[in-house]
Amino acid sequence: MNVFRLAGDMSHLLAIIILLLKIWKTRSCAGISGRSQLLFALTYTARYLDLVTNWVSLYNTVMKVFFIATSYATIYLMYLKFKATYDSNHDTFRVEFLLLPVTILALVLNHEFSFMEILWTFSIYLEAVAILPQLFMVSKTGEAESITSHYLFALGSYRLLYIFNWIWRYYTEEYYDLIAIIAGVVQTVLYCDFFYLYFTKVLKGKKLQLPA
C-alpha cells in the first residue's frame, strides 16, 4: 500500500458515494447510464469472487464487499426503486460490442488459463471500457449535471492514481502486472476528453455542455 494506491481507492469510494447520494437525495437517476452500472456490477462480481478463496487483508475484504454491495444497490435504485426517472431512451450503447471482445481477449490474453484467473482478467478488461455507455449517454444528450460530472471525475481519477501506484511499485518492489497496467491506461485515456471539459467548464461553475 502506498499513497497513490490509497488515494485511488478513496477516489473510487468517493465516486460511488457521490453517485448513490445523487440518486438518493434527488430521488432520480436521470443522466446515469444503467448499462454502465450493470457492467460495473459484472466487473466487481467477476473480480471479487476471490473473496472466498484468497485472503489479502481486512481492508481488502471490506472494500471488495463495499464495491459489490454498492454496485447492486445502484442497480436496485435505477431499475426498481427510481425506475420512472431512468433515462433509458438515451441509454442505448450496445454492450454486446464490449462484452464479446472483452470475453475473447480474456480467454486469449491472461496470466494463467484457469477459471478464477480468466474471470479476473475479464473483469480488468471490462472495467476499462465499462464507462463507455455513460460517456456515450453524455455525448448523446450533450450535457451532464454537475453532480454527475463530479462522479465521473472521481471515477476517472481512480485509475489514473493507480497508474502512479504501479509506477511506484515497479521502482520499489520490482512488481508489475502488464494486464492491469495496459487496461488501466486504456481506462484512463477514455476519460481524457471528459477531464478536459471538467477542468475547463465544470470547475468554472458552468454546466458540462458539449458544443452542438
Binding site: V56, N60, M63, H111, E173, D177, L178
Partner: peptide, 10 residues
C-alpha cells in the same frame, strides 16, 4: 518479487 497472480489490488 511478487507473483502477478496474487491480485492484492482492488
Amino acid at each position: 518479487r511478487q507473483n502477478e497472480l496474487d491480485h492484492d489490488e482492488l
